[in-house]
Write a protein that binds this DNA or RNA. Structure first.
Lengths: 340, 340
DNA sequence: TAGCGTAGTGCAAGCGCTTACATTCATCTG
DNA sequence: CAGATGAATGTAAGCGCTTGCACTACGCTA
């Protein structure tokens, strides 16, 4: 018994107030069902004793935790931070607590985390992207734990999603690149395994290329995990094989920032000799020089809407509706027409 | 009963395996105390049923959650992300789950979060910085919840801390600035309220200034919340009053990155006309141009060591020792001698 | 062979709370 | 004024798990 707390219990309070534990419980959970005088007495006892309800006991008895879990691929870089922050603020407003776990972009790890969260009594879950096993979706269904998928939007899937169309968003920025005249493209991608957002974005690039009469299969794609350094080394790989691309499209701003810095370190003039684009519109995009042309994603709005949707699903047991958010190509200095 | 789960219970498993619930429980928690044949049978039943232990029930019965909470000021920018990520990885290795909450740099909010975490049964807590009410320290003591303070190191305080000496770290970089000949300094600070790290860093600057014969009181300090935009507008304020500083010391890289970009937007040549320094050595520091001279903080190491210390405190109930980590001034392009 | 130790298992008492149901009693109705 | 009504409170049954203790059976030792 490592944790033998010295916390007063409901019973201590009830004795001190001279009532039953049921009355104390009601004072705490449904104050209007208790006579004013009694309530005052009880509340005084609560205050005197510094009583805090035992969470586990409450969960066991009430089968509700007022807790919502979020499982993100990573907390290390800023990709999910802003959205999750907004998510948590909105949950807090609605009286819920957020539990965050990160799965390191690994599906089995995510599955473990989902099961852990459910076992911990999460009333609902926020998940990133659609890709995961049917087994785990079935599990959530049988457990009756509502879930919302964020950072992705797909009305054709049975799951409720609050996000944007990754493919279309990426196609739009790729088209912007192509429209300027670029024909030799390089792509820096995150790891595709277990990450449908990345795959959809790559498809978006391929679609744009086809639309401009390019054979998408000839576009060189370098796949790396996320990180500044990965973007930098991916850049080196892309320019190693000739003819080098005139524009490099990155699936997010972190990779783009790394590629940009490496390009400059290698003496490339960005954007005159080399254009680079990002995705997400994180802080990274605006602090680099030149600032990144990127896809703006409404992270905060996504977090807030997902929270509201999830709370509604928990509280009214309605099915929940998918919500599509708009992204926007944001033109900044890192993209220009090719020189030649 | 919104969450009437359809989860199998220990009893379901025990029936299927033809043993008592006690045996099933032992299979799960102390497998070597059960005969091999029995264990196999039980494990098969567990697998067949897809059984997951109910967390709340387990906590109630065992009074231990294998959960450690971390309450950080914010998750929005990258300041704490790397350290927390390392913290969680190390905890995971030791068999613990991490609960994260953010307190928005507000002390009352932090207090609420601490109480919530304790009520939820956190076995221990990671807190950022020393500043909080005695009442809450007393609370943790009576509840017997071990806590470690990170991002700060102070051997004279009763609390265990794993971190660095904010004052000295900042003094060192300020001295580097002064040594180059700067005498007109500006400072961009985070909000001091409830944030002892910031105050210590400011003291470090004052000490350095005194050491160089400057009156610390004459140094202009602009206080802002953290954010790129805050850094930018703080820069404007600092250069609005003449004579403008020749070097701006920022209490972190986020503010520094914002100030740097704004300086350039206003036509300043950094570092020739204006030097800018940061603190933390986040990604931000290396992707801006010129890269930021900053104080390198061993975030990952801090997270890992804090996790190990905390686990030791929980498991062996030893008092715990404070650990001092070294920081290092990292010279990069944003700092140079003043022109005049 | 009696006596003992030990590994393996079961029994059942909680852990602190919520809540369906039972009880009490003051108030109202006709 | 008897009886109905309903507000306020109490009673007690769990929620699903862990664990101290008791018990059995088997293999040793002397």
């Amino acid at each position: 018994m490592l944790n033998d707390r010295v916390t007063p219990t409901l019973e201590d309070v009830s004795k001190r107030a001279g009532v039953s534990t049921a009355t104390v419980s009601r004072c705490l959970n449904a104050p209007d069902r208790v006579a004013d005088a009694t309530r005052e007495r009880v509340m005084k006892a609560v205050a005197d004793l510094g009583y805090t309800p035992n969470f586990a006991a409450r969960v066991m008895a009430a089968k509700r935790t007022n807790t919502i879990g979020a499982i993100v691929p990573t907390m290390e870089n800023a990709i999910f931070a802003r959205g999750i922050q907004a998510f948590q603020e909105e949950l807090y407003r609605a009286g819920y607590t957020l539990l965050v776990a990160s799965a390191g972009y690994r599906l089995e790890m995510e599955e473990t985390q989902i099961r852990t969260m459910v076992a911990r009594g999460a009333d609902a879950l926020l998940l990133i992207g659609h890709e995961r096993s049917d087994a785990i979706y079935d599990y959530l269904a049988t457990q009756r734990v509502p879930a919302v998928i964020a950072w992705s939007y797909d009305p054709d899937r049975p799951q409720v999603s609050v996000g944007f169309d990754n493919r279309q968003a990426m196609r739009e920025i790729a088209e912007a690149v192509l429209r300027l005249g670029h024909r030799r493209l390089g792509v820096i991608s995150g790891l595709k395994a277990g990450n449908d957002r990345v795959r959809l974005r790559l498809e978006g690039i391929a679609e744009a290329a086809s639309g401009f009469g390019l054979d998408a299969a000839t576009i060189r794609v370098v796949e790396k995990d996320y990180g500044i350094e990965s973007g930098a080394s991916a850049f080196d790989e892309l320019v190693a094989t000739l003819p080098a691309p005139t524009a490099i499209i990155c699936v997010n701003d972190v990779l783009a920032a790394g590629a940009l810095r490496r390009a400059q370190a290698r003496g490339y003039d960005v954007p005159a000799e080399m254009s680079i684009t990002g995705f997400d519109d994180l802080d990274y995009a605006t602090i680099v020089t030149p600032a990144l042309t990127t896809v703006h994603v409404p992270h905060r709005e996504m977090g807030e809407r997902a929270a509201r949707e999830l709370v509604a699903m928990v509280e009214s047991a309605v099915p929940g509706r998918s919500i599509r958010l708009e992204t926007a190509v944001t033109m900044r200095g890192s993209l220009a027409a090719p020189r030649d």
